[in-house]
Nucleic acid binder design. Structure first.
Lengths: 168, 168
DNA sequence: TATTGTTATACTCTATAACTATA
DNA sequence: TATAGTTATAGAGTATAACAATA
């Protein structure tokens, strides 16, 4: 987990287009393209921070959502994190095996699990949160003091708009 | 390729946290979290547009970069798209097999290929560009008229800052 | 020795479909 | 019949390492 390591050797050979940055052409004006590069770079930077901890960036959101919504079910959790419930199962299996979460059948509906953090899970989350905060601090610097709320609102609007489409 | 299909059945059962949106807690304030959701939603929406065309969103950038930088080498291309050269090989193999690109050894450096679009590749790219433009138009609406340049600049700053880190 | 590109391989993330058990 | 969760499986996407050809 969290095993991203790059080695971008900067040589400057003598043939066209290879020594400098490529021209992006129309890509330079596409939000979608920059969204991909920014999220990928940010994700890997966060993963690098988590090196040594055996938890990937995606698991952080799972733990944070359980803490914030005690007793949440797996299906509700998968919806909030916009992935299929079947993608969540192995993650939760692992977190349970490691004693980070508890799963209890709901008496009112014995098909569902009620998910909660254990004390160990809370401690893990708090550790992860420290790294997330440090990472976020870097992002804040890049975005600037006035831009953050706007940026989050815009990103949220994008996510919400296209998620609705997916339902159609 | 481009096979994303969601079915978010909106039932409203009678147990806690399942009927409505979950609380995001601290995640609500994290740029990184919203970056992931926005890019994932936008990516899948674009992929949905490309349904029927046997090319994924990632391949679009490859074709666009080759068009914009005729004769580019594989290593330079992989760098511009921030992925390893070995990830590019199977994509280029496929594009070449389908007659979309040409690969010629550079006389000046016979280790390198010079990549170019064929006529068919250009036609494919133009078709893809129509879909990308339509998708981008949707994003523009969401971002608003004044926000676009700012958003792209911010995303670019994030990508650039963390890519540099990766080199260290 | 260093670099370009290929190959072999593996890991992460995520989805679909069929299943069990409950409702 | 419908829903919650599991299992089996598959397919993108991407990386590392070892390699051949070339520099």
């Amino acid at each position: 987990m969290a095993k991203a390591r790059h080695k971008t050797s900067q040589s400057h050979p003598a043939y066209p287009q290879a020594s400098e940055e490529l021209s992006l052409g129309p890509l330079a004006g596409l939000i979608g393209f920059h969204l991909r590069l920014a999220q990928s770079a940010s994700f890997h930077a966060f993963a690098r921070r988590l090196d040594g901890i055996d938890v990937s960036p995606g698991w952080f959101a799972v733990l944070a959502l359980i803490k914030e919504n005690p007793g949440v079910t797996q299906t509700a959790l998968s919806r909030a994190d916009t992935r299929d419930k079947s993608s969540l199962t192995p993650i939760l299996d692992d977190l349970e095996r490691r004693g980070m979460i508890s799963r209890e059948r709901l008496p009112s509906n014995r098909r569902s699990y009620s998910l909660n953090l254990t004390a160990a899970g809370l401690a893990l989350l708090e550790d992860l949160m420290k790294h997330a905060t440090a990472h976020e601090h870097e992002l804040d610097q890049l975005v600037g003091p006035g831009g953050k709320a706007d940026l989050i609102e815009t990103l949220h609007r994008i996510a919400a708009a296209f998620s609705q489409q997916a339902v159609k």
